[in-house]
């Protein structure tokens, strides 16, 4: 199936997902255009992580359709490798490889998965580490870096695969307040460069500033969505209003 840039890059239609008897997603639909930055917010346990993990097939779904650049993810014959070349992911707990230096963390997947030439991969890895402002930390192990620095290595590691879209799952939630800013700045830089980003976040000010569109989820459905200005000023649904009143 051919996909062109005027179609949504990521398109979810009526996605249902349960873990055993527990229904976590109850018919979620959303579209993300190329270059869009969308933020998903909502109470704990509402299925935000599950939702974005379905997009790169870390979770499978029971019903519905997820298209990434026209490729169906909900397909038993899915080529996961092809999907994961297009979709990057950054996790709340960084999940760096502890036995590899920052540089090795960044260049490992391009060398192993994309079969890039080692020298070329190292060169781009160094450039990416510079881009996330970690020059001089190339040879440090994750255990020797602060949380914020580790998270920026994780972002560089994801970028090294040259994905078309990156999923961010509460990537600042485990950080000290002082280091949250540096990671948000890195994501902001990416967004300005035109990277398509899907973020789950509790940072409302940040969401308001960078997002093109905000989705509010509760109990596995999207309750309300809209551009940040409308969303934050004129929320309609009582659940959204209550959530916003607690968090703002």
């Amino acid at each position: 199936m051919s996909w062109n840039t005027s179609d949504p890059m990521v398109s979810l239609k009526d996605v249902h997902k349960s873990f055993g008897d527990l229904k976590v997603l109850n018919g979620v639909s959303l579209d993300v255009m190329k270059g869009d930055v969308i933020c998903i917010i909502g109470p704990s346990g509402s299925g935000k992580s599950t939702l974005i993990r379905c997009i790169n097939a870390l979770n499978d779904i029971q019903q519905g359709s997820i298209l990434v650049e026209g490729q169906e993810v909900n397909d038993p014959k899915l080529n996961k490798l092809e999907l994961r070349k297009k979709v990057g992911m950054v996790f709340q707990q960084y999940n760096l490889f502890p036995h590899k230096t920052a540089l090795q963390n960044v260049m490992m997947a391009p060398v192993r998965v994309l079969k890039q030439d080692k020298d070329a991969a190292e060169k781009s890895a160094r450039a990416l580490i510079k881009k996330v402002r970690l020059e001089g930390k190339e040879d440090a192990y994750p255990g020797e870096l602060s949380g914020g620095q580790q998270q920026r290595v994780a972002i560089a590691r994801s970028l090294a695969m040259q994905p078309d879209v990156i999923l961010f799952d509460e990537v600042t939630a485990a950080l000290d307040p002082e280091t949250v800013g540096e990671v948000l700045q890195t994501i902001k830089d990416l967004a300005e460069d035109g990277m398509t980003c899907i973020l789950v976040t509790h940072e409302m000010a940040f969401a308001r500033e960078v997002a093109d569109h905000i989705y509010f989820t509760d109990r596995g459905v999207i309750v309300e969505h809209g551009p940040p200005d409308t969303f934050f000023k004129n929320a309609q649904d009582p659940r959204t209003k209550e959530f916003l009143s607690q968090i703002l």
Partner: peptide
Amino acid sequence: VPKSTVEAAEALGFSKLQIYRDI
């Protein structure tokens, strides 16, 4: 080995054998 570390490798497109050998 934390499941989350393995998951990060999966998300990067590593195969099962690569994950076992490298991570």
